[in-house]
């Protein structure tokens, strides 16, 4: 994985903000009493299985994949909401996993998360003022009530919830999905974070609201020099938003590179199949040949040997069953983990 760390992205001199190295997040599954007594190996859900990647300052990096591929777990583990089994996470050079309490709090200011469900993510018993106020109070950003009020007003304007007076005393159940997501973004923005991890922030919103929030996120990146780690299953959204994409399958990154390259010239058979089956909202475009994979995604407790995609891969060879492919730089900036390239 040192290949990934040392190589620089073509055309960009920015510093690396986030570096994930050999990350593993395994959950143990409690099997029955007797099974635990008599069997030697426990069953593990290998949600994130040896993942390495880096995100540069100012870029939007998407983690894309179908449900169950581990992308959400990866995001949560970077935010230290889920325990990491092994591996390293570096934020601005510091090791996130070994922070002391004081520095952990500072990290929690610099790295913020937006969640998928705008209905569940906001505390139902607090008003918008309180919700955003929490960020302010926990990190002591204001010393007087008036200062706090000013900060809240300003950030509500930044996320285009205007007139702010209308929203200050509202409860989350009085807001629409898009408005709630804006409040979530506001409560993250007020801390002036460096990194925002967004976990499917628009998939539970209405179609016309999605574009609003996506465009807002783009504008905020310009305005506040933000960096996004964007987690999604929707490849069309990933294409719209991101500078670079990593495709995940069953806990591993199988392909990673600049968005244009991944979308137009995918190299990994899984990526190729995925790109070919995404429905396109345009009946005029010719449909390319669809690569429809047979079977289902294997269970994360029983990951296939060798290359984990070999059970469904149209190019699978004997070697693929035996050895897990390493990530190699097939083209400048374009990384693939496959024996058949």
């Amino acid at each position: 994985m040192s290949l990934v760390m040392q190589s620089s992205q073509p055309g960009s001199n920015s510093e690396r903000l986030l570096q994930v190295k050999d990350l593993k997040v395994y959950f143990s599954v409690e099997t029955g009493f007797f099974a635990k007594l008599f069997s030697k190996a426990s069953t593990y859900v290998r949600a994130v299985d040896n993942v390495s990647f880096g995100v540069d300052k100012g870029e939007i990096f998407s983690l894309a994949g179908e449900s169950g591929c581990g992308k959400t777990t990866l995001g949560m583990s970077i935010m230290r909401l889920v325990e990491v089994t092994s591996g390293k996470i570096y934020f601005n050079g510091t090791d996130v996993l070994s922070l002391n309490r004081k520095n952990l709090k500072k990290f929690r200011r610099d790295a913020q998360m937006i969640f998928q469900d705008p209905y569940e993510a906001l505390p139902p018993h607090l008003t918008v003022f309180d919700i955003i106020g929490e960020s302010i109070d926990v990190h002591k950003l204001a010393s007087t009530y008036d200062e706090k009020m000013d900060l809240v007003y300003k950030v509500l304007e930044d996320v285009r919830l205007i007139p702010a007076e209308r929203f200050i005393d509202a409860y989350s159940h009085q807001l629409s999905g898009g408005q709630r997501q804006r409040v979530a973004i506001a409560s993250a923005l007020v801390l002036k974070p460096k990194l925002i991890v967004a976990d499917e922030p628009v998939s539970m919103l209405d179609v016309s609201v999605r574009s609003e929030i996506l465009n807002l996120m783009l504008e905020l990146r310009e305005q506040f020099k933000l960096t996004y780690l964007f987690i999604t299953h929707d490849l069309a959204v990933a294409r719209y938003l991101s500078d670079r994409i990593a495709i995940m399958y069953l806990g591993k990154i199988v392909e990673m590179g600049r968005t244009k390259g991944i979308i137009e010239t995918p190299l990994h058979p899984y990526t190729k199949a995925l790109m070919s089956v995404v429905p396109v909202p345009d009946p005029f475009i010719d449909r390319e040949k669809r690569i429809i994979l047979s079977g289902e995604v294997p269970s994360a407790t029983n990951i296939p040997s060798g290359c984990r995609f070999h059970t469904r891969c149209p190019l699978a060879k004997e070697n693929c069953r035996k050895m897990e492919p390493e990530m190699v730089e097939a083209e400048p900036g374009h990384y693939v983990a496959c024996w058949c390239i």
Partner: peptide, 17 residues
């Protein structure tokens, strides 16, 4: 509505809202 849906193919343009 049509212009607010992102697409994987075709020209990449700014989504309308």
């Amino acid at each position: 509505l049509i212009n607010s849906v992102p697409s994987l193919r075709g020209e990449k343009k700014k989504l309308e809202s």
